[in-house]
Design a protein around this nucleic acid. Structure first.
Lengths: 252, 252
DNA sequence: AAGTTCGTTGCAACATATGCAACACCCATT
DNA sequence: AATGGGTGTTGCATATGTTGCAACGAACTT
């Protein structure tokens, strides 16, 4: 690995927390100010870092543009998008698409609910991994040891009384999800919001993404939401087939 | 500047266009494969780059997380957000917040319309700079030479017949906007969508952000939308005052 | 006007990144 | 099976590029 690059990249998460001046960056990086300056300059040239009027640095615009471009070029997303929109047309609720990557689950697409009550979520935002239906689906597909390692490492914030309380409960839930091929989140993240989700699989059968439909209690009860399950699963299967078509089975 | 970092960062926009394998990266970077490998590895360690199953590299999840965190920590956004929501409550239309940075204009917040017809835009997405109301507001505040330089450099895509056709027209429009203190986009980006916008100013009077309200013809006519102008301007002014309060005038 | 703090530059010493060549691996071909 | 082209990967010697220092400059405070 490259030390210089390593240091430069360490600046990014540091600035993500908020603007910082040269001295602070140098200190938190453990290098001389002049070194930090040159690194920041390079980052600046690439637009990843921006220098505001008060001379302090913060993350730059190109970072957003990059993230944006990247997410739009994801194969699954491209294929899934129109199906998600169609699903939203039929049921009216918020539809999410998420992927798992290096211990994180994140939304890569979202179609907003037709109803005025909206959920707080955003593309690129890390998902509440211990409770979200999509997270359960994605993690349930990992191997047993992988699941255990991750489950141990996670925090289990009690967003609501119905949140997953600990690793044991989470692993149990993952087993259920794995078994049944779909997942729910009934008020585990926000008291009044329920979700149902289904996995999207590649040609080799592995789960490559997960989708979910979310709706608040005030619009439909959990029971009513569950009646949509067949529709959601059908949509996910359709996307799976289309995705498998473009991505031939891996020859491993 | 640092050559190593420079090379490493050059990989990002390259991958933004789509996944690439080691050889391709090395070639487009003009370096030896082994060098490219080490750079990619470092990027990978920081989560900026992800290695998919077919061994090819693409941009990684942390990039989104970073962008997300950064945008949430922007002072203007934090202050403006509740006001944008309140405005949306009153008028029901889509509300945008945007900033200018290094020749680019981008959305940093958005409150979705209550109506089913939605606009395609996304936080972090570069704005259609030659036609959007927010872009006009932000650029209008630059100095005359700056405006000219940028106007010359831009492309003028004719999204619709009402799009800004060329640099001359754009500069003229900017002058008008600068004079009147508000801006519109009447079908210049999408035929059936109109926007009105107002600037948010810092304590020194400079425009730090711009906000806009967008609505499709099918919901309200352009004339009706314009009746919201006082409300939009008042909201922008309120945000300006609050923002100026936290960011004392620069002593230059 | 003197003193502090912060960003910036030139330079010499050294650590680090570089390209090479050889290796290991997978898949396709014969 | 064996061969060959295509990957990605490793160790190593060279020299290039990065580092920290110290000194400078600018802006703000006292």
């Amino acid at each position: 690995m490259s030390q210089t690059v390593d240091r430069a990249l360490s600046i990014l998460p540091l600035l993500a927390q908020g603007p910082a001046d040269l001295g602070q960056v140098a200190e938190r990086l453990g290098v001389h100010k002049s070194t930090a300056l040159r690194l920041l300059r390079t980052l600046h040239e690439h637009g990843l870092v921006y220098r505001q009027e008060d001379q302090r640095y913060r993350l730059g615009a190109r970072l957003f543009a990059l993230a944006q471009e990247a997410v739009e070029n994801l194969d699954v997303r491209e294929i899934a998008h129109s199906h998600l929109v169609a699903l939203n047309d039929r049921c009216g609720h918020t539809v999410h698409l998420a992927v798992y990557e290096e211990q994180e689950v994140l939304y890569i697409d979202k179609v907003e609910s037709r109803y005025p009550v909206r959920m707080y979520s955003r593309i690129g935002k890390p998902v509440a991994i211990t409770v979200a239906a999509v997270a359960k689906l994605l993690l349930a597909d990992l191997t047993e040891p992988e699941r255990r390692v991750i489950a141990e490492k996670l925090d289990y914030p009690m967003y609501t009384p119905r949140s997953t309380p600990d690793a044991a409960a989470f692993l149990k839930e993952l087993a259920v999800v794995r078994e049944q091929g779909w997942a729910t989140d009934l008020g585990g993240h926000e008291e009044s919001i329920n979700c149902i989700g289904a996995p999207i699989r590649g040609a080799d059968g592995r789960v490559v993404a997960a989708m979910s439909v979310s709706a608040p209690n005030v619009v439909v009860t959990a029971e009513e939401l569950l009646t949509l399950l067949p529709l959601v699963r059908r949509t996910a299967d359709t996307i799976s087939r289309e995705y498998s078509g473009t991505n031939r089975p891996k020859k491993v």
